[in-house]
Design a protein around this nucleic acid. Structure first.
Length: 312
DNA sequence: CTCCAGGTTCCGG
DNA sequence: CCGGAACATGGA
C-alpha cells in the first residue's frame, strides 16, 4: 500500500499544482459521518485494536472490509472517502453510547485516570476473520511488529484493489492462506505463529469452524468455539469477541492489563492466579468491561511511552 | 547481550 | 487447578 498510495498521479502535465489539485479533489469527495458524544480517531487507531491504518496528511489510509478508504477527523465530525457514511459509522463504533459506557465504569482512581487520558477512544467493529487472524499473529509481539506482519500478509496474499492511483490490499481470506505452506507463512516474520495461522485458516476454509455461526452463540459458547482454533486461547478469543463479535463485556488479559490488575487492583496480594484475575475482571468492570479494558490498556501503554512508571 | 512484546500449548505436580 | 518451559522475531 504505502508509497504507491502517496503517488496518486504520475506523468501529469503541470507538476507544481498536482498536490493542491489532488487535495481539492479529495476534499470534494469527503463525506461527513455524524456521531454523538466523543470520538478521537487517532486515539482509537493507535490503541492496539487494529493494525493496518497508516497516516496520510491529517488523516489515515486503511480498509474497511474490502473497501480502501481515507478517513480524517475535523473539529466536530469524521470525514470519509471511499466508503459510505453508514459503513464508517458501523466500523468505528460511532453508534456506541459512549457517555453511558464510560459512566458505567467502576469509579476508582485507575479507571478515572484512564478515562481522562483516553477521551474519545472507541471500540472498532472489525471483520470477523481479519480480527481473529490478526490476533493469532499478535501473540508475544509488539504492536509495530503486528502491523508489519499485517501489511506483509496483505500485500503478498490479499487481493489488490486500485485506490487513488496506487493499490491497496485486502486482508487475505482463509482460503487464500489455507493453501500456503508453513514455510511461506514463516517468511512473513510470523515465527512459530505460522503453524497456528495456517491451521486456523484451514479450519475456517473447510467449514470446520463457521465464524458467522459463532456470532450467533452466546458469549460463553462463542468464547469456547473460538478457543478451538489453533493459536486461539482465552486472551485472543476475548480480543476477537470484543473487537469483532460486538461483545463489549469481553475482557482480554494480556501482559499490560495483567500488570495493571496486579499493581492497581491486587496490590499487596502475593500470588494472583490468572483464573482469579479473570473472575475479578469479568465481574468488577461491568457490562462494558471490554471498553474499560481498552481504556486501561491504552493508558498504560501511553504512560510507558511518556516515560512514566506506574500510574496513580 | 539481555529483556520484552496484546499468548498458546503441553507437561508434571 | 497451578507453575514452567518451549516456541520465533525484532526493537530498545
Amino acid at each position: 500500500m504505502g508509497d504507491q498510495t502517496r503517488r496518486a498521479s504520475r506523468g501529469g502535465k503541470s507538476g507544481g499544482t498536482e498536490t493542491a489539485k489532488r487535495r481539492d479533489h479529495l476534499a470534494a469527495r469527503l463525506t461527513d459521518v455524524p456521531y454523538v458524544g466523543e470520538f478521537n480517531l487517532e486515539t482509537t487507531l493507535n490503541s492496539g485494536q487494529v493494525f493496518h491504518w497508516r497516516r496520510r496528511g491529517a488523516g489515515w489510509d486503511g480498509m474497511i472490509g474490502d473497501a480502501p478508504c481515507y478517513v480524517v477527523q475535523e473539529d466536530t465530525a469524521l470525514r470519509v472517502h471511499g466508503v459510505e457514511a453508514a459503513t464508517a459509522r458501523q466500523y468505528f463504533g460511532l453508534d456506541h453510547p459512549l457517555a453511558d459506557i464510560v459512566a458505567s465504569f467502576p469509579r476508582d482512581t485507575a479507571m478515572e485516570a484512564a478515562v481522562g487520558a483516553c477521551r474519545g477512544l472507541r471500540v472498532i467493529r472489525q471483520p470477523l476473520w481479519e480480527c481473529v487472524a490478526t490476533f493469532i499473529t499478535s501473540a508475544q509481539k509488539a504492536v509495530p511488529h503486528i502491523a508489519q506482519i499485517s501489511h506483509t500478509l496483505r500485500s503478498r496474499y490479499g487481493r489488490r484493489v486500485e485506490w487513488e492511483g496506487g493499490a491497496a490490499f485486502t486482508y487475505p481470506t482463509p482460503e487464500a492462506l489455507a493453501v500456503l505452506s508453513e514455510e511461506e507463512l514463516r517468511s512473513c516474520a510470523l515465527g512459530y505463529r505460522a503453524k497456528n495461522l495456517l491451521k486456523t485458516a484451514q479450519m475456517v476454509a473447510n467449514g470446520e469452524v463457521d465464524l458467522q455461526a459463532v456470532a450467533r452463540l452466546d458469549d460463553g459458547e462463542a468464547h469456547a468455539a473460538l478457543c478451538r482454533l489453533a493459536g486461539v486461547g482465552p486472551k485472543v478469543a476475548n480480543c476477537a469477541l470484543l473487537f469483532a463479535f460486538e461483545r463489549l463485556s469481553a475482557f482480554p488479559i494480556d501482559v499490560w492489563i495483567e500488570r495493571v490488575l496486579r499493581t492497581l487492583y491486587f496490590a499487596r496480594k502475593r500470588r494472583v492466579t490468572t483464573k482469579r484475575m479473570q473472575e475479578f475482571s469479568a465481574n468488577y468492570f461491568g457490562p462494558y468491561g471490554g471498553y474499560a479494558q481498552q481504556y486501561l490498556f491504552h493508558h498504560a501503554r501511553m504512560q510507558k511511552k511518556a516515560g512514566g512508571l506506574s500510574g496513580a
